[in-house]
Design a protein around this nucleic acid. Sequence first.
DNA 1: AATGAATGAGCCTTCATTCAT
DNA 2: GATGAATGAAGGCTCATTCAT
Lengths: 218, 218, 218, 218
Amino acid sequence: MKDTDQQVRSRSWKQDPEAVKADILTVAREEFAEHGLSGARIQQIVERTKSSKRMVFYYFGDKEGLYRAVLEEAYRGIRWQESELDLDGLPPVEALLRLVEFTFDHHRANPEFIRLVAIENIHRGRHMADMSDLADLNRAAIETLETICATGIAEGVFRPDVSPLILHWQISAMCFFNVANRHTFTRNFGTELFSDEAQKDLRASIARTLVEGVRLRP
Amino acid sequence: MKDTDQQVRSRSWKQDPEAVKADILTVAREEFAEHGLSGARIQQIVERTKSSKRMVFYYFGDKEGLYRAVLEEAYRGIRWQESELDLDGLPPVEALLRLVEFTFDHHRANPEFIRLVAIENIHRGRHMADMSDLADLNRAAIETLETICATGIAEGVFRPDVSPLILHWQISAMCFFNVANRHTFTRNFGTELFSDEAQKDLRASIARTLVEGVRLRP
Amino acid sequence: MKDTDQQVRSRSWKQDPEAVKADILTVAREEFAEHGLSGARIQQIVERTKSSKRMVFYYFGDKEGLYRAVLEEAYRGIRWQESELDLDGLPPVEALLRLVEFTFDHHRANPEFIRLVAIENIHRGRHMADMSDLADLNRAAIETLETICATGIAEGVFRPDVSPLILHWQISAMCFFNVANRHTFTRNFGTELFSDEAQKDLRASIARTLVEGVRLRP
Amino acid sequence: MKDTDQQVRSRSWKQDPEAVKADILTVAREEFAEHGLSGARIQQIVERTKSSKRMVFYYFGDKEGLYRAVLEEAYRGIRWQESELDLDGLPPVEALLRLVEFTFDHHRANPEFIRLVAIENIHRGRHMADMSDLADLNRAAIETLETICATGIAEGVFRPDVSPLILHWQISAMCFFNVANRHTFTRNFGTELFSDEAQKDLRASIARTLVEGVRLRP
DNA sequence: AATGAATGAGCCTTCATTCAT
DNA sequence: GATGAATGAAGGCTCATTCAT
């Protein structure tokens, strides 16, 4: 009868809003990545949290607000990691190879993020509408490629008409697909491309393909 | 009164189970593609149908059964269209170019299918487990590439170590990403790659990249 | 934790939708009359019912739908009772006296209805918008007065300019106020007008006032 | 983020408890009059205020305390205005006519107060229990009528058995009903009695009725 | 084979209020 | 005295599904 969906929880860290929010976000991220926006259950998120359902609404407004916060945080987190890569001074072909391989590994290491992006695409990117500071974060990715391309063209090893944006698009496509479509691909064509060994080869293969795709030929 | 659980519908074609099922499937496909498995509402599917909620359960068991049927039907439909392409007798580079371009266009023309596949990947391909005749359908895709590669290698224009499976993987990655990730990509980097004009260039670009990726060099 | 607000209930009369609806309506009427639209709790209504929360929504759509049904039913019920009065053949002054006294008693006997009307007025009559068959029911009330007035005028005992509608308005005002405003009037001026004895006098007083108000004077 | 529980507000007049309370009361009165006790939302009241939710509880204890304060203030405000009328020296019939017309207009001009009283009646006058100084205020209303009646009887134009209290009751009934039941009356019988023109006639009609009701006849 | 009626379980959200300084 | 942060308790509503014929 009486529906009371409160939950007992330790009051150990009360009075630290940021910690509470972070706690919620961490769990929410996992749940949204696992079940999608409509599939995730606030109750289930909260049960794995030191917080309460009420707090979710207090801090994030509603379910979509929480989802949006998760998405934003996910993007922010990803970009930070990307900046770890240092390609300065490398010859352009080498740099591109390294960038592709790094991206490939990076995507593989962050399947949860990939899932969130896939989910957000199902929602037609609707929830990214007002994530203003996203553009800045993404510009960095393009700038890296702009540098590589400029050098490559200047050195005469890249075609003069290579487009950093398209190149980024191609790298993303390959690396994203590898994680995001793994399951259906596996069901259709077997698991042979997804052993650790095979992934190394696959990575080499796509790195090579992308390099050959931009290489200037006499 | 009487909430929308029940609905009036014209009983014109009653007594034709297959037609009823097909009617349901058509609508269900759209709804699942639009909202995902958990996001789709049986109620909403049924409202756009000449059938009733009860019939959905009668014919498909439960929501997942319906989703599974939609997915299976979607895969079946897709493969039929693919067989329209005739590459026999074309030189391998030309054939590959044509195949890539065809696949690119094909994916673009079937965003609903792409969404269904993306959704199924969110669910880790869990619902394709028992789609037995899928393997056969997919084999065709690989066989086309095997022929092209075999010829290309024999003629000395493709690297001898090209893998038809990896090549298929790469083609799929590019073409799938173009449709599936369009929304987040757009939010991050603008729409410039998605005008009809730009898509033509992009298609050319990835076709070239993939060809250069397999080409044997002296 | 888990919020489950189901309730156990005897399944004795399942399969009789009208009985179930009537059961709900009866209780809902009491609860709405007691606490108003926003003050009433579906849970509390349902607890006094042989039915479940789910059934309320099934039969009435939402809380407002239930409220609307209660209101409509209340109006219908009232009008039926009113038709019990037979004034045919009575001299007009006598008829009017009887009508006023009957209405006075009738209102006193139906405080729940009066409360519902008062509540609906707080809502600015918003929920009566689509109660189409209400007009017909009300016409009867006016017709009775039209007959009385016509006779009274013809016989030269009523002023020729009496308005049946205004007369109805005046009767309603007095009889409604007696029930609806009893509480604040009592707080302000004591209970002396509300003993059974005093109510009889009051009834006589207002009947006389209304008769004198229409009487033609030489 | 941070749901709307807290609100920014200009702190211009902080440190003036009475002003803060008055500010809250003004808004609360409107909200309670509009939505009733249970229908009004503290949140919504506070949003239109220069104050905070916390202050409401600080100054008024709880929602009911605020409501009570609103009600008390409303009664106080009304009586002040009533004292504007000066009937001294007028012949009793004239005085009564004037009083009725004044009351009619006065009620029409204060629909918010009328609604508050109607609402309080829905609550069975429960919140007026401890409004001690109310009695004094109301006595004035009766006293006016006592004077009129006394004169009327003395002059032989009023029946010797007229009751000032019942007369007050009748005046209130008519004038209150006109404002409070306007909505349901309109839904049932159309708007014809509520145009400015018709209201003037109606006012004349009830004034006459009430005068005829007390007039001594040979 | 086919279907209208009914429903258990749980969802997201909101409310007035108290905690802690 | 004054207030920002936090919250217990429930509230209305919706979901896929089963009952009963």
